[in-house]
Computed example of a mutant assay.
Amino acid sequence: MKVSPPSLRRLSKVLCVSVAFLGCFEKLPESTLGERIIKARFYYGYTKREFSALLGISERTLYEWEHDRKIPPPTPLNDLSKYLAVLMKE
């Protein structure tokens, strides 16, 4: 059964646990920047639409970053770094 990121967020609040705990995302790959972006987005329980809005970019741009087709420029990369930091805490 698949659960949407917003449902995971709601469930994590009710159970007082992290989205990462519920999602078991620790085994997702993170060898490329794109994989790290996807993993961080999942850890926070954001959809592509929500995450791209937080970063002030289009969903298409996020797709390009997540699939390693484009590299984020410095300003969005700085914004991304606070989300990617969660991967360092594993």
Rank of each mutant, 00 (worst) to 15 (best):
M1R: 11
V3C: 02
V3Y: 07
S4A: 14
S4I: 06
S4L: 15
P5E: 06
P6F: 08
P6K: 02
S7V: 10
L8E: 02
R9I: 03
R9A: 01
R10M: 05
L11G: 00
L11D: 01
L11N: 01
K13T: 02
V14T: 07
V14A: 07
V14K: 11
V14Y: 04
L15F: 04
C16R: 13
V17G: 04
S18I: 08
S18A: 02
V19M: 00
A20R: 13
F21N: 08
L22F: 01
F25P: 01
F25M: 02
E26C: 00
K27A: 12
K27D: 14
P29L: 04
P29D: 06
E30M: 09
E30Q: 11
E30K: 03
T32P: 04
T32M: 07
T32K: 06
G34W: 03
G34K: 10
E35H: 01
E35M: 02
I37E: 03
I37C: 05
I37M: 03
I38L: 14
A40V: 01
R41G: 11
F42S: 10
F42Y: 12
Y43V: 10
Y43N: 09
Y44E: 13
G45F: 11
G45P: 08
G45D: 12
Y46E: 02
T47A: 05
K48P: 02
R49F: 11
F51Y: 12
F51G: 12
F51T: 13
S52K: 04
S52C: 14
L54I: 14
L55N: 09
L55H: 13
S58I: 05
E59W: 03
E59H: 08
R60Y: 12
R60W: 11
R60V: 14
R60N: 14
R60Q: 15
T61Y: 09
T61L: 12
L62M: 11
L62C: 13
Y63E: 15
Y63V: 05
E66R: 09
H67I: 07
H67W: 04
H67L: 08
D68W: 11
D68A: 09
D68K: 10
R69E: 15
R69C: 06
K70V: 13
I71A: 13
P74W: 09
P74Q: 06
P74G: 03
P74C: 04
T75A: 15
P76D: 06
L77W: 05
L77P: 00
L77E: 04
L77Q: 06
D79S: 15
D79H: 14
L80S: 07
L80M: 06
S81R: 04
K82F: 05
Y83A: 08
A85I: 09
V86T: 14
V86I: 15
L87D: 07
L87M: 06
K89G: 08
K89T: 12
K89Q: 14
